[in-house]
Amino acid sequence: MATAVATHAHPPTSTGLDHRKIAIWAFIGSECMLFASLISTYLIYKGRSVVGPFPHEACDPPKCATHLHAILNIPVTSVSTFVLLMSSLAMVLALAAVENRGKPGYEGIMGSSKLWLLVTAILGTTFLGFQAYEFTSFVHEGLTIRTNLFGSSFFTLTGFHGAHVTAGVLWLVTLLAIDMKRGLGPKDAILVDISALYWHFVDVVWIAIFTLVYLIH
């Protein structure tokens, strides 16, 4: 039976590439438009809030009831940006470990996909922790999603990004669970590959947000 089946197995793909990798790239292309819409709106509304707090400028009476300082915390966000960048490094190492399982140079720590998947997930969670800290401190300082245009567009943009990171962490944890259960080898590289593409894309979106939202003023 096995041979009969094999003759009629799926024909080769036209490009020799895996379906899922094409789909994830198409998805990433689509996400470009999603984040472009969010970032455009943030930039369009920049400087148009009628009440504070503002991202880069202090707000004093009479415009604001009390003195409000510039709200963005660049040092903290720089650290969380670094954390996310490092998570991308851990992610490529996880992929390399899975792809090169058993090859020379990938013994020990470099070949431990479990370790690198875990590190990526932890760094992603750390980034989310920084974001949670940032959001709560903003709320304490009087900026909620309802306060002004800056609040609405800022929380929506960074919140959407955070939601993407959260989905990515869930994905990584799922992969980690599979790795623990049966081990991921070169045959499964595609599974790690597509999650890595998603993860790096979420990272590059943050690269853009960090510059456009936090640094430029």
Binding site: R20, P186, K187, D188
Partner: peptide
């Protein structure tokens, strides 16, 4: 008998080949 280009099951090695 995993076809190198098939797409369906997780345990088929696509990437390697």
């Amino acid at each position: 008998m995993a076809d190198q280009f098939t797409h369906t099951n997780a345990d088929i090695d696509v990437h390697a080949m």
